[in-house]
Simulated scan of single mutants.
Amino acid sequence: MQTDSEHEWWASHASLLVTDLAGNHLDLPDNVRAYMISGTPHFAEAADVMRKGVPAMSLPQNPMHAGGPMRALLTDLNAWISDGIKPPASRVPMRAHGTLVAAQGAVPMDIPGLPYAGIHTLAAFSDQSVLPPKEIGRYPVFVPKADNDGMAIAGIRQLALAVPRATYTAWNPRAQGFGPTALYPLQGAVVPFAPTEAARKEVHDPRLSIAERYADDGAYVAAVRREAARQVAERILLPEDAERVVEAAKQGKLAKLGQ
């Protein structure tokens, strides 16, 4: 069983897990499971340099972490080993599913405040028979395809992504003056939805506003509760974590919880 944050698919060429060296689709063996925790940075608790007054990231830092699904998957792994109960099917972007694509065009480019430019880490291969080694080519690297909100379609989508009030990305470009053509290491970004239809239209935001998605706070909490129950049934969320995230949604703290 292999788990990765979504950041690894942008910064550590994780697509090579499910493609051959020409970039073609590869199926995973039946005794292997792979999961991408969508919308997550590499490490959510890394120091936030923006809070220290150094605007090295272009966008606000993504607070998401993978605690919920990782606890569920660890339980699934234990059941697989101890009792032969197969875990949920792999959930990673795949070329054959149309969810693993070239970086250019992977994310909508018309979302205000989301400066998508297809930045990702390339994978070179080199001639090791000479010193220093000489680059002789590059492997094809692909990234997760995003939906109209700018978030990965494939993978395990935690409650904050499945019932969203903001766009969560696993990438965050460096700010102007800090090498803006590169990704900021290990971090993702968050871009909130507009509160109302009028507010989003004013800035030409194609993402539905919070008010257009949920009639009121009760409707939002109900949607979180339904999705939490579905994820428990699919064994990618533990019942105790489902209760915790529903309570956080009631208090308006779901994003702060990192779920």
Rank of each mutant, 00 (worst) to 15 (best):
T40W: 06
A56G: 02
S82Y: 06
K52Y: 04
E45D: 07
T40M: 12
S90W: 06
R33Q: 08
R33Y: 05
A72K: 10
A66V: 09
L73T: 02
H97E: 14
G68M: 06
R51C: 03
G39R: 03
H42Y: 00
D76I: 00
H13C: 02
P88V: 08
A46Y: 10
G23T: 12
T3L: 00
H97Q: 14
G67H: 09
N78W: 10
A14K: 14
P63G: 13
I85E: 15
N78G: 08
D83E: 14
Y35M: 13
K86A: 15
L17G: 07
T19C: 14
R95H: 06
A56S: 06
T3I: 03
R71V: 08
W10C: 00
P88A: 08
M36D: 02
V49G: 00
A66P: 06
M64H: 15
E6I: 09
S5W: 04
V92H: 06
A14F: 13
E8F: 03
G98Q: 13
S82I: 03
Y35E: 09
H13Q: 10
L21G: 04
V32H: 05
W10E: 03
M94F: 07
G39S: 09
A22T: 14
H25G: 07
M70C: 07
T40Y: 05
A96K: 15
A89V: 13
A14W: 07
V18E: 11
H97K: 14
S38D: 05
H25E: 14
L28C: 05
H7P: 01
P63S: 12
R91Q: 15
H65F: 12
P29E: 09
N62F: 05
L100V: 04
H7L: 10
T99C: 08
E45V: 10
L17N: 14
P29N: 11
L28S: 05
K86P: 04
N31M: 13
H25I: 09
A79R: 13
